[in-house]
Computed example of a mutant assay.
Amino acid sequence: MEIIHENEYLYKMNDEIEPYLATHRQEGYISGAEDHLHRKDTGIVGKIHVQRYLAEKPKGVIIISHGFTEAAPKYEEMIYYFLKAGYHVYMPEHMGHGQSYCLTADPSLVHIDTWKRYVRDFLKICHVIKKTYPELPLVLFAHSMGGAIGTIAAAWEPQLFQKIILNSPMLRPLTGNVPWPLVIAIAQTKCLLGREEDYVAGQKPYDGSETFETSGCTSRPRFEKYNEMRKENKKFQVSAASYGWLLASVKMSWYIKYCGWKKLTAPVLLFQAERDDFVSVNALRKFAEKINHRGITSCEYVYLPGTRHETYRSDDRTMEMYLDKIMKFMDSGMVSDSCT
């Protein structure tokens, strides 16, 4: 499959890809997990915004689990590739992101009360999809925070996904110069003191100041495209973590490290960026090693030289190899009882 090259990226996306996707897109809302529909003090109903793209002769369904502060439009290029390859694509936006429900009134803040809410909501969406297409295999495509959510979902229900693709998954977030044990202690203390909705130290409201050089993207045209879209739409401007979210990320990391990885049964394809400022590369390597050593399933570990955290938004040369690897992984051994 031919990628969209950087020298024509804006033109292709604006004039060809986005109109094509618009003709295939349906969108709406699906209620989140029943035990986490709303909070009485805010009256917020737990509705997850979901985009659906339908292929003409589907051989499977790809469910995308996006990363921290991301929204659906950021994945339009990958959605296009998957759709052209013959897969239905579902793009839910996690709670607190995009057009899905929030637990805080601050439009810049990502806050959550319990990490299990992410997983329960995501699984609710997956169940709806599986009920709609019972004969089609489900493929998980997950990035960063969404990688943690998706990995736990796959651990809770090992038979749900036939293939798992993880891009720089947040198996353990990086915490700068602050030691991991201290981060845990601070997050726990803040939440115990009732300050779970405070901004994590060093975080700030969205101000549109992110640059290509400070981003997790390797491709300047890809960065600029989404960055301009983000500046124009407040729904895409979440930018900071609360202490509640930080503690949730810690607990997701613990679950995956000590329990979750053992429950996976589907083959895993894991991409590691060379320069990752957001997740622990050491945690990624240990995760893959443990899965392969256990022998229940396999984890193919792919190192991408010259890339940053957002491996799915890389330079042309990397994208060609990256996409080829994904397509071969998905198509190998894929079993479907129906092509309708």
Rank of each mutant, 00 (worst) to 15 (best):
E310K: 04
M145E: 03
A273N: 09
I64G: 00
E196I: 05
G208D: 07
D337P: 06
L136P: 00
Q272V: 09
I149N: 01
S242V: 05
K57P: 00
L166Y: 01
L270W: 05
M321T: 07
I112T: 09
V178R: 12
P221Y: 01
Y11M: 07
S249N: 05
K251E: 11
L174E: 01
E135D: 14
K204W: 13
F141P: 01
V45D: 12
D337T: 10
D198G: 06
E77D: 15
L246A: 15
I112S: 00
R25A: 07
M1P: 10
G146M: 08
K325C: 15
T114Q: 15
E135V: 05
V281I: 08
K57G: 06
K225W: 15
S215L: 13
T218F: 03
N177R: 10
Q237H: 11
T175Q: 09
Y20K: 09
E2C: 05
E135W: 09
A154I: 11
K262H: 12
H36R: 14
K74P: 03
I4A: 03
R39F: 11
W254D: 10
M252W: 02
R172L: 08
I164T: 03
H49G: 04
E77W: 04
G86L: 10
R308I: 00
V45R: 12
Y90Q: 13
K130F: 04
G43W: 13
Y53M: 15
T340R: 15
L103Q: 08
D35T: 11
T151V: 14
T307Q: 04
D331H: 12
Y258T: 01
M170N: 02
K257F: 07
Y11N: 13
W254T: 08
D106P: 02
E70L: 10
I112F: 04
Q188I: 02
P179E: 08
G176V: 08
I296S: 07
V302A: 05
Y255D: 08
E300V: 09
D277F: 02
